[in-house]
Design a binder for these strands. Structure first.
Lengths: 315, 315
DNA sequence: GCGTTGCCATAGATCGAGGCTATCAAACTT
DNA sequence: AAGTTTGATAGCCTCGATCTATGGCAACGC
């Protein structure tokens, strides 16, 4: 407390000198005069009580402490830029490109509801969609190729924040003549001994459904792994077995007059949680909260259960 | 660039208001007058072009953007405090408590060399030692219970930085009457079919030695897992098998006249790398570099190979 | 070896950001 | 309705960041 804290300008000066290894050029790059920059660095060294830069008339180089402090100063300056960015984004909420990745077992069932709502309420938002499996989405999110991912939670990825959106029950889809057809409180154990058709490897819904099957003692027809839920439902209609669908997919995939029936499970009903994921460092958290509201707003009329809105986010 | 950047003072003001939810008390806590603080927050809102605080005469609360920016501002202010801390540490290098964790297969062989050197050259440093296995040390490091850990590299822990110190060959320890006794270029494959004694689970050296054994086709005497290298060497002397030691342990553990012999491997000689690990965010990186030099300085006279000093660190 | 050149530090003047005191305006209390 | 609490505004002042001009020092050329 006795020591005055470094100034913002001083940190910028130090980083400039570190970048250019030359006071004159650094000063030019920062649009200040060379003496100004010189005294700024000197002042920083005085307040910190440590030599940061070794000056000779021929070369400028950093001391060990200097390196350390430059690294932290870069972080500080970057964070301040972020603050400005957050503010700019907030001034124009939900505008510009939004690179959204969606898992294949959600995309075809949620997007047709979401897109019209969004276009109506936020015409400035340009959604760039990408459909891929969870692992791919998370990698692209982390690498900055995506802004947002819509997928099953939780993923427990460090540095990734998740917004829960809704819980989606698993529903049994079976041939119409099957004994379970139309059941409304089928225990999971009723799957014992049944042939269940599942997605191919890599889909998170495959793993979730497989869990249910293994608990119940059902068999997977491993020779018939499909690339999409549509394909699987066709195969069920063809009498090759039965399958599980996430509730949102039922309306689209199970039409009338195709020889298909559904059945719902008894409690505890197997289900999955769908939500948004974004980099915890994202400058557009406010945008993502707004988008989450839009997804929730797109849901009524379905039998999906909304997740409670976390405190602090306007509902 | 058109928008002026936020000031430190302004950020501090905002965080103060967020903490106290009251302008008057926040001003008192920051040792400024209430109007000063008021105008600082107002100025910040003006430069960012966004309302951050909702004021009524009865209560003060943050907007959504406000929350976001407060969180980032805290980070910025914390980082600036860190910068000051780095400088203070650098002004008084290697002083105060250093909580150092060491793995059990290094501690008894390195510390007796290190401690006297360190006490001589850095009398102000107070080393608090802790001996534990790698997993424990890394957890304590991460949690802040340790400042530093001396262990085998690499660990590839995110957020943990490692300084390589030296490479240490593995040496074969055998009964004196064993055919391999005194060998100086024994191929690893010569271990095939031998009974090898290893440490109990959890020691990194156990895993490393086990790798060598499995490659060579040696058997582990699994019923005889020991808690320390000393114990193992006693068991070798008792004729129960042979073992591997890290080179630094040989001088201490294998004395004269105990019926023990050593043998060195032919190339590629199995070995491990020992180094220091610390939180990447540590404010005392300069200290840790100095300490690394001390460890290296303590080594000459042994047959351990020093690792090259990374560029930028004074050697 | 001596002048030239490049480069960083110092000096002194200027101007604006941020600080303070005094006062106002609004809203809740009694 | 008067008082109290609390944040905003006004006006003044101080200090620090910036500028131009100049000084000092080391390396290089001829």
């Amino acid at each position: 407390m006795a020591t005055p804290q470094p100034t913002f300008t001083q940190l910028r000066a130090l980083v400039g000198v570190a970048d250019h290894r030359h006071f004159g050029r650094a000063a030019a790059a920062l649009h200040v005069s060379q003496p100004t920059l010189s005294s700024a660095v000197a002042a920083l060294e005085r307040t910190l009580g440590v030599q940061l830069v070794e000056r000779t008339t021929r070369s400028v180089l950093l001391t060990g402490v200097g390196e350390q402090i430059v690294a932290r100063a870069r972080g500080v300056l970057g964070a301040v830029d972020d603050i400005a960015e957050v503010a700019v984004r907030a001034r124009a909420p939900l505008t510009g490109d939004i690179r959204l990745g969606v898992i294949p077992t959600v995309a075809p069932y949620l997007l047709p509801r979401l897109l019209p709502t969004l276009r109506g309420r936020w015409p400035q938002a340009r959604l760039r969609l990408r459909e891929a499996q969870t692992a791919t989405l998370l990698a692209e999110l982390r690498g900055g190729a995506l802004d947002l991912a819509l997928l099953a939670l939780p993923n427990d990825e460090p540095g990734i924040t998740e917004i829960p959106l809704y819980d989606e029950d698993f529903v049994l889809v079976i041939p119409a003549e099957h004994p379970l057809a139309g059941g409304s409180a089928v225990p999971v154990a009723a799957l014992a001994g049944q042939d269940v058709l599942l997605l191919e490897d890599g889909h998170c819904f495959r793993a979730q459904a497989l869990d249910v099957c293994q608990e119940a003692g059902a068999r997977e027809r491993a020779t018939l792994r499909a690339a999409s839920l549509s394909t699987i439902v066709q195969m069920v209609a063809g009498g090759l077995g039965l399958t599980l669908l996430p509730a949102a997919a039922v309306g689209v995939e199970v039409g009338e007059g195709r020889g298909l029936a559904v059945a719902t499970f008894s409690r505890p009903v197997p289900h999955r949680r769908i939500g948004l994921a974004y980099r915890a460092t994202s400058a557009r958290v406010v945008d993502w909260d707004l988008l989450a509201q839009e997804v929730r707003a797109a849901l009524p009329g379905t039998d999906l259960e909304l997740c409670p809105v976390p405190a602090g986010n306007p509902g």
